[in-house]
């Protein structure tokens, strides 16, 4: 069954210093890393940030191979980006065949961009591999809370995320069931041209879509009858509390990242 094998998020349930960090610390750090990865412009920073991410992976007891697997879904994007950069960046030509020509600048830029993309994905995967969906939404809600003052729907967003995460496996299970039922009646989802296959998906998607409305309706009724009335006056089973170790980790990491960034600007 498709749904049963799905784990919510990609969380690996083991114990490590990284797993036990407050989710807010991990979210902030991931955010800072993403930001920095976008602004740094040299290989030196990439090297150090890469080492940093690798170090965190070791501390989190996550097998490196497992982390690298998270790159698989974007493999196509990586190759595509590289090809695009290599062939279409003008500059000093290092290889030529017919109308195809590779420039040195294109080659370097292509590599640079895919390293950046890889590091971005690895940093975010590290977050989702070490943080449960519950912690993740809790952390986000806490972080968004200050913006409520200006009407930002922090609680509602967190609730939507929770429900989305909760229903992904359910919908996959249902898709699986509908697909089997249609296949039993001769539908074919695996062969044929892309257009044909897309067409064949319609009898799968329509019932799935309609059922989702029914589910949403039921869920709203269930929530209402359990006294849900939005975030006002609501308390939590789990209250997030920053520990000493959280502060220490956040401080050290930020110090390291700042150091790398600044030194790269001076060297650059």
């Amino acid at each position: 069954m498709l749904g049963k094998s799905i784990v919510l998020g990609q969380f690996i349930p083991i114990e490590s210093p990284i797993h036990s960090l407050d989710p807010r610390v991990k979210i902030i750090l991931a955010g800072v890393l993403i930001f920095i990865l976008f602004i740094v412009q040299d290989w030196f920073s990439f090297l150090f940030l890469g080492i940093f991410i690798f170090g965190l992976t070791l501390t989190a007891h996550i097998p490196t191979g497992y982390l690298l697997k998270s790159l698989k879904p974007i493999l196509f994007l990586l190759v595509f980006t590289l090809v695009l950069q290599i062939f279409f960046t003008p500059g000093e030509v290092i290889w030529e065949y017919g109308i195809l020509r590779i420039s040195r600048e294109g080659f370097v830029r292509g590599l640079f961009i895919i390293v950046r993309l890889c590091l971005l994905i690895l940093a975010t995967s590290l977050l989702t591999l070490t943080t449960t969906p519950v912690e993740l939404t809790d952390g986000l809600e806490y972080l968004m809370n200050p913006f409520k003052r200006w009407g930002f729907p922090a609680h509602e967003l967190a609730m939507m995320m929770t429900i989305a995460i909760r229903f992904i496996p359910t919908l996959l299970e249902e898709a699986d069931r509908i697909m089997k039922a249609q296949e039993a009646r001769g539908a074919n989802f695996e062969t044929g041209s892309i257009i044909q296959r897309a067409k064949n998906l319609i009898p799968l998607l329509v019932p799935l879509f309609i059922n989702s409305f029914k589910r949403a309706d039921d869920l709203a009724i269930a929530m209402e009858s359990r006294c849900y009335r939005g975030g006002i006056g609501r308390t939590r089973l789990r209250v997030l509390q920053l520990k000493q170790s959280d502060y220490r980790f956040l401080f050290l990491s930020l110090a390291f990242i700042t150091f790398v960034t600044f030194s790269s600007f001076f060297l650059w």
């Binding site: 919510l8 449960t132 969906p133 519950v134 929770t162 429900i163 995460i165 909760r166 029914k214 589910r215 039921d218 869920l219 269930a222 929530m223 359990r226 006294c227 849900y228 009335r229 006056g233 609501r234 308390t235 939590r236 089973l237």
Partner: peptide
């Protein structure tokens, strides 16, 4: 269609949380 949260305990706590 009536389990809201992503774990059993979070879901059981949903009502009491709403009660504040």
């Amino acid at each position: 269609n009536q389990i809201i949260a992503t774990t059993v305990e979070e879901d059981v706590a949903f009502g009491p949380e709403n009660l504040g």
